[in-house]
Nucleic acid binder design. Structure first.
Lengths: 182, 182
DNA sequence: TTAGTCATGTAATTGGTTACATGATTCG
DNA sequence: CGAATCATGTAACCAATTACATGACTAA
């Protein structure tokens, strides 16, 4: 995040919450100590940028830091972890409460639907803010792609679970057979 | 997992690794201590089921445990966390290494493609094993739904990033304009 | 004036992984 | 006979959240 421009810990947190949160969250308790660690490793440099009595430290990448970032981005992505309580509950519905399965699927659909709405709001905000500065602003292609993915994946997922809920309703109501199976 | 039938910690880990891992992972270092905690809370009961000299403890749900499970599954799913390094790298590509964006998208697609293949293998294994026992076996509807979701979502994601990689290639090669934008 | 936001930070705790240690059994 | 698998467990460590503490500035 410092590669784009110098920022304070507070700004980093804000930026995460308004964009990266849906695929990589972070808290102050992680950000501030990490900035200190990076500074003592010589990868970032902090400079006081207080406004009057309100304290503020902005950090920028050092040459080493920029090199480390380049190296990191050059490596093949590896981490892909998910904790999805909706899937977990659906997974166990059969052995704990069979008839709740459809309801869980519906709730899971709602979660994705809400997420899609939130991400769309971010998209619209960026879209409006990004334009007025002219062609030089160049809305960041990578982050916009990620955002688009977030929106479309959430919508796809919401539709998937809505459909699954219908199938499950039919299956749990009458016979045990599973429509669309195989 | 104990709601379906009594299991040992080892079996729980196996079951997770062969099905739930993709949306909720767990390690021995988590499972064994947790079983002890649940036992002292009276939610599960362990019984020795050693075969000869090979030790083995199977745990089953107590009445309280079953009640707790029902209560848990009755609650609306809440946790939905993701750590996706591919998205993270793509997000930063613009400020660190613009021309790597397409490559990252392609790598991200490959990750989802591999996942889809793994999940398909599980599906096929369950499908074969589940049938011979006749209609009484009743392949668990919830877990099969979850598995189907995993497969289809992974395939959808792989296709999405493949397409995004093509768009990014075109965008980074020539002009800065973003096809398919908005 | 007060609620909201800007701004930084730490302590306690949680949740989890990795690596290690041990040993039995089974199958090719 | 050796490799794989069954089986349990702990210690060290790491990553991260939550809650708390502090205080300045700003806009209604």
């Amino acid at each position: 995040m410092l590669a784009a421009r110098p920022r304070s810990g507070y700004e980093i947190k804000q930026l995460i919450d308004s964009s990266a949160r849906f695929f990589w969250a972070a808290s102050y308790g992680q950000i501030y100590p990490e900035l200190k660690k990076l500074e003592s490793a010589g990868l970032v440099a902090g400079a006081d940028s207080s406004q009057g009595a309100r304290q503020r430290t902005t950090f920028k990448l050092t040459a080493d830091g920029r090199r480390a970032a380049r190296e990191w981005i050059g490596q093949r992505p590896d981490v892909l972890e998910t904790r999805d309580e909706g899937l977990l509950k659906l997974f166990f519905a059969g052995s704990i409460d069979r008839k709740r399965a459809a309801e869980i699927a519906r709730e899971r659909a709602a979660i994705s639907r809400e997420k899609a709405i939130q991400l769309r709001a971010i998209w619209d905000a960026v879209d409006v803010a990004g334009q007025p500065e002219g062609p030089a602003a160049e809305p960041d292609i990578g982050s916009m792609t990620v955002l688009r993915y977030g929106i479309e994946a959430s919508e796809w997922t919401a539709a998937w679970f809505e459909r699954a809920a219908e199938d499950l309703e039919r299956a749990t109501a009458g016979t045990v057979s599973f429509p669309g199976g195989r």
